[in-house]
Design a protein around this nucleic acid. Structure first.
Length: 566
RNA sequence: UGGGAGAUCGUUCAAUGGUAGGACAGCAGACUCUGACUCUGCUUAUCGGGGUUCGAGUCCCUGUCUCCCAGCCA
């Protein structure tokens, strides 16, 4: 049986459309900049799990490198030990690989460069471009100025090079308490760009680092570290999101002051998707507060979450390739992501019949105790995927929604007096119902036409619809987990997450039925439950109990018709 | 009200001074043993006002709107 979990690593063959970053690279190559090299990097901070927004950046960086015959590094931006953990490093490695990208031996960490970064800071001190400041965090903030007023220069700004060197080395040696001093760049307290108002380069922080342990008591800030890390690795195009536009002058200031290789920072728009939370901070909150079962809850937009949900790397790559890259911050419709997962799963998912919300059907004229098998293809358009036998007997289950005692106008499915086709089996006609004391239909009685075996009547008569079914005696009981958006359609703009969450984001159908061929399916096997949706086998599934996640529903024209009727 | 960035179909990305195009969504139809898939057709856009030009989404001026920035986070 084909399982495709972590083995789906074939690269996308999409022809990439033009975008402004490609234009820049093409121009750079033409001008012989960087000797025509293209070298990018994907630089996550290991402080959480990767989500679909990161997938855009991953596909962009690795994709650009591939398309231009260059390289792309994986680098962990681990300069803040108080937030970072090995668990996150491991998950990021797994997720990038799962998405189908390869960094060969180029996996790096900002922490690999701590000593070099320290030496460069010393160089900047010697050049008179950095100083040790004794102001507290509050004082730094108070003296930073406002949008209309310049900041106030620190009283420690003009310390001698010798004193700065001495103090900075003593910061490293642990002579001062956390937060008592910082190393700052001496730039311009009057700059209209706050990032240039003597930004902090190093802070004193006694926290165990997931890689360097307690070797360091001072840690470089992102702004100080990032350009140099890029420079060390020979990065040519340092691609990041729009909010770093204001940081670019500082990025350039450091590499220029140091006289080292200068990568070009290019900013693009972060991915936003309707009704989808793509903030690491908020996702962490969802996990911590128990609103979801974990980072890999199938409702999460994390790569581990959507992987568990049944999304494939191909679908995600195709999606990322189709959304484009620009500098305007837009919001992609969730429907586009769903389109790509349907498109991919339609090609690969084995068809199977499963009934999510069963209602019993008795074929009155079918012999008691008799069983027969009907042959069904595993994929309507892919004969090479084979076929399987589906057992049929007197008592069946069909979808509750496929029967109406009183049909609405134009209802094509089963109702008293109406004949439909049981897929791959027989024509059946509803001849009556049984009800419980509440008037609820409990059993639907039908008769079948033995001549229609296989699903077609020799007299050429047509039916309006074909419905799916399972044999009650042979079907496997299973648990279907149906997902909707985690966020409410009209989520209030509030910091209180609870008020924004959809109470129906997970509906468990513990009494669902599936044809026996699904027995023993491995986790992450993709199925199309015909006429219902794409599902995959969940991690929680065991030999005794099959558990399936609804990845995405099939497009449903009838639902639209019904909605309009209301 | 300082600085930075952006504005093209409902959404999103193209069009690099020369026929405004694709994808998704929507609508209509064909096909169908999945109201799925597939196929066909259709609707809909250059933020406003000036200017340059034979010709402007693209260049210039001006206005409007949106997003980002005052962490010892990244």
């Amino acid at each position: 049986m084909p399982t495709d979990g972590l083995n789906e690593t074939t690269a996308t063959s999409e022809t990439a459309p033009s975008n402004f970053i490609r234009d820049i690279i093409i121009r750079d190559i033409q001008n012989g900049k960087n000797d025509g090299r293209v070298h990018t990097r994907f630089p996550p901070e290991p402080n959480g799990y990767l989500h679909i927004g990161h997938a855009k950046s991953i596909c962009l960086n690795f994709g650009l490198a591939k398309d231009f015959g260059g390289k792309c590094n994986l680098r962990f931006d681990d300069t803040n030990p108080s937030k970072e953990e090995t668990e996150y490093v491991d998950s990021i490695i797994k997720d990038v690989r799962w998405l189908g990208f390869d960094w060969e031996d180029r996996i790096f960490y900002a922490s690999d460069y701590f000593e070099q970064l320290f030496q460069w800071a010393v160089q900047l001190i010697k050049q008179g471009q950095a100083y040790v400041c004794d102001l507290t965090a509050d004082q730094v903030r108070e003296t930073r100025g406002t949008t209309t007023e310049p900041g106030i220069e620190s009283p420690y700004r003009n310390r001698s090079v010798e004193e700065n060197l001495d103090l900075f080395h003593r910061m490293r040696a642990g002579e001062f308490p956390d937060g008592s001093r910082t190393l700052r760049s001496k730039i311009d307290m009057a700059s209209p760009n706050f990032n240039m108002r003597d930004p902090v380069m190093y802070r004193i922080l006694r926290a165990e680092h997931h890689r360097t342990g307690n070797d360091w008591l001072i840690y470089p800030m992102y702004d100080y570290a990032h350009g140099e890390c890029d420079s060390i690795e020979g990065i040519t195009h340092s691609i990041c999101t729009l909010e770093f536009e204001d940081h670019r002058p500082l990025y350039d200031w450091y590499v220029k002051s140091l006289g080292i290789h200068q990568p070009q920072q290019i900013e693009f728009d972060r991915l936003n998707i309707t009704n989808t939370m793509l903030s690491k901070r908020k996702l962490l909150l969802l996990v911590q507060k128990g609103f979801v079962s974990g980072w890999d809850d199938p409702r999460m937009p994390t790569l581990s979450g959507i992987r568990r949900r049944g999304y494939t790397p191909e679908a995600i790559r195709n999606f990322c390739g189709s959304i484009g890259v620009s500098k305007s911050n837009g919001v992609i419709e969730l429907a586009l992501l769903e389109h790509h997962i349907r498109e991919d799963l339609n090609k690969r998912a084995r068809r199977v019949m499963a009934v999510i919300d069963p209602i019993k059907v008795v074929i009155d004229n079918y012999p008691e105790g008799q069983t027969e098998e009907h042959i069904a293809p595993n994929h309507p358009d892919a004969p090479e995927m084979g076929e399987r036998a589906v057992p049929f007997s007197k008592v069946l289950y069909i979808e509750r929604d496929d029967f109406r005692e009183v049909p609405p106008p134009k209802y094509p499915r089963l109702y008293p007096g109406q004949e439909v086709r049981l897929r791959y089996a027989y024509f059946v006609k509803c001849v009556g119902v049984e009800k419980d004391e509440n008037g609820e239909v409990t059993v639907v009685h039908c008769t079948y036409d033995p001549a229609s075996r296989g699903g077609d009547s020799p007299d050429g008569r047509k039916v309006k619809s074909t419905i799916h079914w399972v044999s009650a005696e042979h079907a496997l009981n299973f648990e279907a987990r149906l997902y909707e958006n985690l966020l409410l359609e009209d989520a209030p703009q509030s910091e209180d997450l609870a008020t924004q969450l959809n109470p129906n984001s997970l509906v468990v159908k513990a009494n669902a039925k599936i044809e026996p061929s699904a027995k023993g399916s491995a986790p992450n096997t993709h199925f199309q439950f015909e006429r219902v949706g794409y599902f995959n086998v969940d991690l929680d599934s065991t030999d005794e109990k099959l558990v399936c996640n609804r990845t995405v529903q099939l497009r449903d024209a009838w639902a639209k018709i019904e909605k309009k009727a209301k």
